[in-house]
Design a protein around this nucleic acid. Structure first.
Length: 703
RNA sequence: GCGCUCGUAGCUCAGCUGGAUAGAGCAACGGAUUCCUAAUCCGUAGGUCAGGGGUUCGAAUCCCUUCGGGCGCACCA
């Protein structure tokens, strides 16, 4: 491995600095870390800002620079890798000897030693990504995760890490109960032969629609009924409260009320014990000596107006005992509360059957789950993403609960308000067992983590999951640490922002998701009609199909990757299907042009190429860019930022496009120049292809 | 209320550990094809880096604060 230019420059700088000021403390690495790229490439390739030395040397930066430049010039005469140095104000700039660089770099690229994966490192990494839910639609939002996870797997592997690419399928939960409930009770059509996974997603969407109380009533509350105020007394100790006796129709009850604006005889909305209002369960509470059995609701609490102070008074004609949801039903005289209650009961019944392993529903679950899985496999295949292992939520549920019991015994976990969970320093309580004894999402994550550590022997664990779960993972990792797992400190949540649409967040309820199949179809059409139709007849249909596929992958993956991961992506279908400029296809196009040249240029002598002939500015920039590849990949991996590699490859493709424009290979003035350029082009193609591969994008020989 | 995150050109975004004149793409305008693929290249125009303080020789970058978006915060996953 050759020494980087930064280090070569730093080595000479250090020698000169120490000759000038022997008391200077610092090593080559420190000085090298100060070396940067000049703002303007006209100034050189490397820059050293002497501001760094102003304090230790106690002299103005420009004076230091002026004092060092002569010494530096002397040294550089004997350094073949640096062509010249110069001083501009407080900066010392160096120009790299491009020919020298090219001479060592290009052969390395061409014999494959520069682009092949790095030496194996003894540090096992698991990268968990995708994690789709079965029985739900796979849409563009899921694709950001897949693009990120897959790119990281490839990049880690290139850097020498043994990687286990893992998926974690969400195959249990209420969403499945809803889907199967709809299938059993409400679906009356034919089950399609194709796209059965998306079909299940449609069923799930229809189920949520049926279960969306908002669609039935303006006041979507269960357990809230019309009651009449019978008596109204002042609270014995709190004058701002009143003690109200309510007639519920079949019985009466006592409620302590803080609201105002109602009289004896008024009809009000009464939330009974056990009902939920604003996400809170109504419980019997001791209100300063008086037991309050329920709650009288304000307009705000009912969601009907903004008034939080005044009790909402209903028309006197409405009979006592009517569910409040029926009063505000969107279609008059409908028993919406009863309907909704029945649906909810049915769903919860389905969930219980699933959880208890009732044979009939279990068989249906397994069959439909396979429909989803078949579709996922097809999508991964299309995207060229591969997993070494699939975990299933249904496999870790019991294990998670057992684990919680175990660590409760050990005293690591605690009981709290009927639940079991982890008390974490600086973080909110993490609940692991609900008061009914069932586990939660986090419970399964603990068991999953233990499996990763024990069965796969991994040293580092990366979770590619969207940013809304940041707190969740902080809590889970902290809990694992509390449980004594060493690897907990090597767990990393790679958070990324959601993919949203121009008119807002994607939501299955509003029906504004873009399905994977839709995107694939649209991209295919657009790519063919705009770019590939012109080759019809010239290329085989098969090649056109394959090219469209590859370009579609490039469009999606690069689009998803070339944005800082903690930022939202605003997805506009129109834009994405007709992009030019900084895109995946731009990189592929640059690669295709390299291959086009190489096909036409014929044979040439690799070894005898004289790289001193590559003196054009565009060629120099390109060589410089090629040399950065390894450092960029390493840095991309370290920062978990595929975007960095995207940016590099874009710069590389741009440098090549300029060179292509300004320096013709086929029409080079001399044969040696042609040979040198051909090698440069071939090296560029190699780096582009390797880089594209690391992003999960297949290069095309022509497009 | 607490926490995380974002605010940079008309739009979408880069700008890594502070460094020289803040950069791309799209859109706009003007050029380049007898010449290796015009999915390209070159040029012009476009900025109070949300506002205000502070640290520093130097701040889009670090600290504090205000404003404004997004997302989380105990029985969902």
């Amino acid at each position: 491995m050759t020494m980087s230019f930064e280090h070569i420059f730093a080595k000479h700088l250090l020698a000169v600095i120490q000759a000038y000021h022997p008391e200077f403390e610092g090593d080559v690495d420190l000085v090298a870390s100060w070396v940067e790229a000049p703002k303007d490439r006209e100034l050189g390739d490397l820059a050293f800002p002497c501001f760094r030395l102003a304090k230790p040397l106690r002299k103005p930066p420009a004076v230091i620079a002026a004092a060092l430049i002569d010494g530096l010039r002397d040294v550089v005469d004997s350094e073949p890798m640096i062509a010249e140095v110069s001083q501009v104000g407080p900066y010392l700039n160096a120009r790299i000897n491009r020919a020298g660089q090219a001479k060592s770099l290009i052969p390395q690229i061409m014999d494959g030693s520069f682009t092949k994966p790095r030496a194996r490192i003894d540090h096992r990494v698991m990268i968990e990504y995708s994690q789709p839910n079965t029985h739900k639609a796979f849409h563009v939002g899921h694709m950001r995760n897949v693009a990120l996870g897959d790119a990281l797997v490839r990049i880690y592997r290139w850097c020498g890490f043994p990687v286990v690419a893992a998926n974690y399928i969400g195959d249990v939960g209420t969403h499945i109960a809803k889907c199967l409930w709809y299938l059993e009770r409400h679906f009356s059509g034919e089950i399609p032969e194709q796209h059965r996974g998306e079909f299940l997603g449609t069923l799930y969407f229809k189920a949520t629609e049926l279960l969306d109380f908002d669609l039935l009533t303006r006041c979507p509350l269960l357990g809230v009924h019309v009651a009449q105020v019978m008596e109204k007394d002042q609270h014995p100790s709190r004058p701002e409260w009143t003690v109200v006796t309510l007639d519920l129709g079949h019985e009466t009850c006592l409620v302590v009320c803080g609201g105002t604006g109602f009289e004896v005889g008024d009809r009000v909305a009464y939330a009974s014990l056990g009902s939920r209002v604003g996400g809170r369960v109504i419980e019997r509470v001791d209100k300063d000596g008086v037991l309050s059995e329920g709650m009288i609701l304000s307009g705000a609490e009912l969601g009907l107006n903004d008034n939080r102070e005044a009790v909402f008074v209903l028309e006197p004609t409405i009979s006592v005992g009517t569910p409040i949801a029926d009063v505000f039903a969107r279609k008059p005289n409908e028993n919406v509360a009863g309907t909704m209650q029945q649906r909810l009961n049915e769903v919860s019944e389905t969930l219980k059957r699933l959880e208890s392993g009732e044979p009939e529903i279990t068989a249906l679950w397994q069959k439909t789950k396979q429909w989803s899985m078949d579709e996922f496999y097809e999508i991964y295949q299309w995207l060229d993403c591969h997993f070494d292992h699939f975990f299933f939520e249904s496999d870790v549920g019991d294990e998670g609960k057992a684990m919680v019991e175990e660590y409760l015994q050990k005293g690591v976990l605690v009981r709290s308000q009927g639940t079991v969970g982890a008390e974490l320093e600086g973080l909110p309580f993490l609940m692991l067992l609900k008061s009914d004894g069932t586990g939660l999402y986090a419970t399964k994550d603990l068991a999953l983590a233990r499996r990763k550590f024990d069965e796969f022997g991994i040293d580092e664990s990366i979770y590619v999951v969207d940013v809304s779960q940041s707190l969740h993972f902080q809590q889970v990792f902290k809990t694992l640490e509390l449980m004594g797992f060493e690897q907990a400190k090597q767990c990393y949540h790679l958070a990324y922002g959601l993919v949203v649409l121009r008119d807002g967040k994607m939501s299955s309820r509003a029906g504004n998701v873009i399905l994977f199949s839709q995107l694939r179809e649209l991209l295919d059409q657009r790519i063919k009609s705009e770019f590939l139709e012109k080759y019809r007849g010239d290329w085989s249909d098969r090649e056109i199909d394959d090219a469209a596929h590859a370009i579609a992958i490039a469009t999606i993956k690069y689009g998803m990757l070339n944005q800082d991961h903690n930022r939202m992506i605003v997805f506009d279908l129109e834009e994405w299907t007709s992009q030019t400029g900084n895109t995946g296809p731009y990189l592929m196009y640059a690669y295709a042009r390299t291959q086009s040249i190489l096909k036409k240029v014929g044979t040439w002598d690799v070894l005898s190429a004289d790289y001193t002939l590559l003196s054009h500015e565009a060629e120099g920039q390109l060589i410089d860019q090629l040399g950065r590849f390894q450092d960029v990949v390493a840095s991309t991996r370290e920062g978990h930022r595929p975007r960095e590699l995207c940016a590099y490859l874009y710069d590389l493709a741009r440098a090549f496009s300029r060179m292509f424009d300004q320096c013709s290979v086929l029409r080079a003035d001399t044969v040696p120049l042609k040979a040198a350029r051909a090698n440069l082009v071939r090296a560029t193609g190699e780096i582009l292809a390797t880089g594209l591969h690391l992003l999960g994008i297949p290069p095309l020989e022509r497009m």
